[in-house]
Design a protein around this nucleic acid. Structure first.
Lengths: 131, 131
DNA sequence: TATCAATTAGTAATAGTTACTATTATTATA
DNA sequence: TATAATAATAGTAACTATTACTAATTGATA
């Protein structure tokens, strides 16, 4: 199964870079403007493959649709519950704290932590100003 | 809208206490054994209402179905990715750390944090022993 | 007891996502 | 360059978790 870099795959990558943490269907709608034949299945499949290979990041928040992120370096996601916008926060400074949490959990549950998922929500500054 | 404590509601509460972090359909299947006419919609509705009133806790993890927890005190959830079991960890000792994270995020994103969702996954000790 | 509203069972509808299949590229090679 | 092998696609169907809807039922209350 040799990777073939199809035009669709490149369009998806391009959309990811232009859009801010888009969902699969946002990517789909974006590409459809210039290439109406793109298939939603193709978008899902490629996003899934890229996420699995570590090329991009999948952000799963509660029951809302998954979002995808081109930058894979360590950062946390904060979502505004008013406008839905997603903000990044560099988690480098929190690294030690996060490790401590992992250790605490391993000790109290016996589970060897391999993955942590954390996201935050609240009201962003511009939404606060509006009200 | 006066709360009526229907038999169904009590069965759901009972199931929650007997099962360990069950999903809505696990609750449904459990009740169905003794009361086959229970409706899945009723289970969902009551779980939703109880979660909203703070009587129980809703645990949303990634794309897997929501789970529910009778104990509403501050704790974190750790899921074994091998057997799916969910473990609780008292997060009281982490409170200061979590507050620090909130403050850091507010500063760097401008979002006033109102809710944090975090869960962890790894391999539990009994699954580690098996391999 | 009659009335009125909360709750239910059962079903339909929805959203997000994955699976399937026949067709269309793309690469390797004879 | 023509051909064979196969990765990837478009389009559609299917699936899962969940919510919405509606008519019937239940239970409290005047």
């Amino acid at each position: 199964m040799v990777k073939r870099y199809s035009a669709q795959k490149m369009m998806i990558k391009d959309a990811l870079m232009r859009l801010n943490h888009p969902t699969a269907s946002e990517v789909y709608e974006y590409i459809r403007k210039s290439y109406p034949n793109i298939s939603l299945g193709t978008v899902y499949r490629n996003l899934g493959l890229m996420a699995e290979s570590g090329e991009i990041l999948r952000i799963s928040m509660g029951n809302s649709p998954d979002r995808f992120d081109v930058s894979t370096n360590d950062h946390l996601h904060v979502m505004c519950r008013e406008c839905g916008q997603v903000f990044d926060a560099d988690s480098h400074k929190l690294e030690n704290m996060l490790k401590e949490i992992d250790e605490f959990l391993e000790e109290s549950t016996g589970v060897h932590i391999e993955d942590r998922t954390m996201y935050f929500s609240g009201i962003c500054s511009s939404c606060r100003e509006k009200s």
